[in-house]
């Protein structure tokens, strides 16, 4: 046997020897606790989703381990996502992703991760956006916003330039032909919606569930709902506004693991997540808290990312470093 034959032989034998060990590894998975990274502070929207799903996920993993929500905030989510990306691809570290937020940060530069290489486990839901004004605002419709825009830029309250809402506001107002000025720096979505109600700005563009809650409390009026067909009585939608692209401005909640996670382990995690989203306790939580929960499998999650990447590539001018 020459050296070449030996190497070919060894190449055939090594996977054969490794296969039962890998199978054993998958059978044993998970043998220790799983860290579920939330790249934002405790108490926020993404944090709530993970904390609602984690206990249910523990029920559906093949072995009894804890799923530990861990907040790694800073840099608009970059730090936690970097940490996930650098983690060992062994299934013991997973994270929730704000898409397109994390994509926006990647495009702006400074992030260490590449979303195209992340192992996607699925999606747990999406929110469409909409436009709201304070309940006592004289602005009654999108037409009023356009009329105001003819005299001066319309002021929108929002968060920092790294966040989805910031880019969403710029893109939506561009599509609607509204000249805008952003008052940024608010700490979270509740904060900048209340700022609009208070009159810091003329209007706000944010995720619909929050706008619906504030409208139900009598504090805010929804002028537009960016869904293809509005679910908010009296609000204009993407179709009636003549801008179907508005429906592409969404907030997706994807779950991912570090690049190179073995497919068998990814399947175990994905299966547990799917069952956790459908668990009666999680569903009850979603209804009570008006949180949109809908499971989409890994391949759909990867497609969502590709669609969002394509959409935001078109609007790259609004993602330029601050």
């Amino acid at each position: 046997m020459d050296r070449r034959d030996f190497l070919i032989g060894a190449g055939a034998i090594v996977p054969a020897l490794a296969a039962p060990r890998l199978a054993h590894a998958v059978d044993a998975f998970p043998e220790k606790d799983i860290t579920f990274i939330i790249p934002y502070s405790a108490g926020g929207g993404f944090d709530n989703y993970v904390r609602a799903i984690a206990p249910a996920m523990e029920k559906y993993l093949p072995h009894k381990v804890n799923v530990i929500p861990t907040n790694v905030a800073a840099g608009g989510g970059t730090r936690g996502t970097n940490q996930l990306y650098r983690a060992k691809p062994d299934g013991f570290t997973i994270a929730i992703f704000n898409i397109p937020g994390m994509f926006v940060l990647q495009e702006r530069g400074g992030a260490e991760y590449d979303l195209a290489k992340v192992t996607w486990l699925g999606s747990i839901g999406r929110d469409h956006y909409g436009i709201g004004v304070g309940a006592s605002s004289p602005l009654k419709s999108v037409a009023d916003l356009k009329a105001l825009s003819a005299t001066r830029p319309v002021k929108f309250t929002t968060t920092g330039p790294e966040a989805t809402a910031y880019a969403a506001t710029l893109i939506a107002t561009d599509l609607l032909g509204i000249k805008s000025q952003l008052i940024g720096g608010y700490k979270g979505s509740n904060d900048y919606v209340v700022a609009a109600i208070r009159g810091d700005g003329d209007a706000v563009i944010t995720a619909l569930p929050l706008l619906r809650r504030m409208q139900a409390g009598g504090e805010l009026r929804i002028l537009a709902d960016f869904e293809p067909h509005s679910t908010v009585p009296g609000a204009a939608d993407a179709a009636s506004l003549g801008q179907p692209e508005l429906a592409e401005i969404v907030l997706e909640r994807l779950i991912g693991a570090p690049p190179g996670l073995p497919p068998d382990i990814a399947a175990v995690l994905s299966d547990a997540l799917a069952k956790a989203v459908a668990d009666p306790a999680t569903v009850a939580w979603g209804k009570a808290s008006d949180s949109e929960l809908a499971w989409a499998p890994p391949e759909r999650a990867a497609r969502i990312l590709a669609e969002q990447a394509a959409f935001f590539q078109k609007w790259k001018k609004y993602l330029a470093p601050g």
């Binding site: 502070s41 405790a42 108490g43 926020g44 944090d47 709530n48 904390r51 609602a52 700490k187 979270g188 509740n190 904060d191 209340v194 809650r213 504030m214 139900a216 409390g217 009598g218 504090e219 009850a284 939580w285 009570a288 808290s289 008006d290």
Partner: peptide, 23 residues
């Protein structure tokens, strides 16, 4: 809108129990 880290976590507890802070 929480007034600090402690209230932010408490906000999460409210939401976990189906109480959505807001008007």
């Amino acid at each position: 809108i929480p007034s600090g880290a402690e209230m932010a976590v408490f906000l999460g507890i409210l939401i976990l129990h189906g109480m959505q802070p807001g008007p």
